[in-house]
Design a protein around this nucleic acid. Sequence first.
DNA 1: TAAAAATATATGTCAGACAATAATCAAGGC
DNA 2: GCCTTGATTATTGTCTGACATATATTTTTA
Lengths: 279, 279
Amino acid sequence: MQRGETKSGERSRAPPRRRDAERRGKADGVLDHLGQQIVAGRFAPGQKLPTEAELGRQLGVSRPSLREGLKALAVKGLVETRTRRGTTVRVKARWNVLDTDVLRWIAAAPPDHEFLIDLLEFRTIIEPAAARLAAQRATPAQILEIERAYSSMAAALPRDVEACCRHDLAFHEGIFAAARNVLLSRFAAAIRTALLAAFRISANARESYENSMAEHWAVADAIRKRDAVEAERAMRHLLAGTARDLAPAFDEGARGRRDGPRPPPLERRRTSPTPASKT
Amino acid sequence: MQRGETKSGERSRAPPRRRDAERRGKADGVLDHLGQQIVAGRFAPGQKLPTEAELGRQLGVSRPSLREGLKALAVKGLVETRTRRGTTVRVKARWNVLDTDVLRWIAAAPPDHEFLIDLLEFRTIIEPAAARLAAQRATPAQILEIERAYSSMAAALPRDVEACCRHDLAFHEGIFAAARNVLLSRFAAAIRTALLAAFRISANARESYENSMAEHWAVADAIRKRDAVEAERAMRHLLAGTARDLAPAFDEGARGRRDGPRPPPLERRRTSPTPASKT
DNA sequence: TAAAAATATATGTCAGACAATAATCAAGGC
DNA sequence: GCCTTGATTATTGTCTGACATATATTTTTA
């Protein structure tokens, strides 16, 4: 569980008391607040946010601090600010969906089934390859790390599902690290979000884990035996199981049909920007 | 005021309409400058850069502007700034290697062969899958886009290699777009860097292109025919060709850095603390 | 009516100052 | 002598206020 959520709303004009709740800077507070708002769909793409003066007044920070936060938002691709035109929210396709914060906001926002499907599909592309490379290149220490993560998962499973999830993350991170590719190593954040989302969506993650422990073991075993082909296959199998577990929740909200035998659906999904009309 | 040409009125008469490099703000200038310096290895990981006051004086910008640039650098993962400890350069493993700017700096810096190998390997994972999905999901308009990019490549090839490269980029970007996965769509920047690096490394990109036009066509044709398996295979073939074209330059660079006898090309590199004994 | 100039407004930048914090160093107790 | 504890101090974090610059909007004029 994330800690240190932003305490929004302390915009008191009061004199500077010791506010130890905000250990991070004001700029980071602005970043977090606005990022969540944007990802949650509070500002439609293309829409202009209030002026810097207005925003600063609303959030209770000065303009320099606000600008630092805005700069960070721009780097993450969520907004674009031009002189005199104000800062506009960019379309989702352009934001940095692999950024840690962006993923955290997405995970915290009302579940976006389209994105979660994309994320799972992306893992299906990346992770089997990572497992294959890990089987070829992992150092003994890294193999040990992966196996230890698996053991911890198995040990924690019945009683502490949250700890199991944590070790699951370590399991996948260990595989990425063992693949020894700096680009692949950047995707732990995506996995973290996927796991968080799985927690929030699936009614019982416990059952999912109980189903997938054998598949986790198969991956670790193949890597230990340096069987690249089998590692790739096992990881694919594991992710297919994950997709199966999540499918019911997706069907509930997802309308688009992705797996057609033929592509007569010229338009896949991508409906108009209706931000989750969930009540 | 030896450095301070920031005073007003110096360039009042200029018609600066298309000055992209100059037009951006001071903060972006700071970001670009420091980013290049760091990526080029001017600051070792863990090293502290000068204090904000000192840096601002060196770069000729005020502290707020400097801080904006530093914030952007922190978001990109290059540095980490903590109260009273200053800003320290992070190890390369932690920077955002998929960020557009970071990739541009890497491409501009002296060629990092290890990174380029990782990048090519990463493309080998991502792009075949993207081609497969594109064959399944591309709209007619997107197919047309891909084919137009191919035609432009073929038309520009003999005389204008740089235009050919541009259309090559459009070709790959079109495939990513047609794959219709927001996460996949974020990798055009990586491709751009790969192409730039290929230009800088390979003695003559023209020959590479002449070799690979047929393979490009095979990818486009498979997508048009909606043959997912063939699209994936063709893309893999295309990237294998790219790797073959770049291999001599890599070997050259590797040989230049190592004085000893050539290492067995079978094993990769990265002889980390524990050499993989089981091979 | 349409083009050109003037105005208005929001961002970009700067300067200086103060507050908060943590690294450093000095003093004291065991 | 070594460790703990407190004062010092340097550096980041933040604020106020202002001016410069560029562009959207309005007004004026041909």
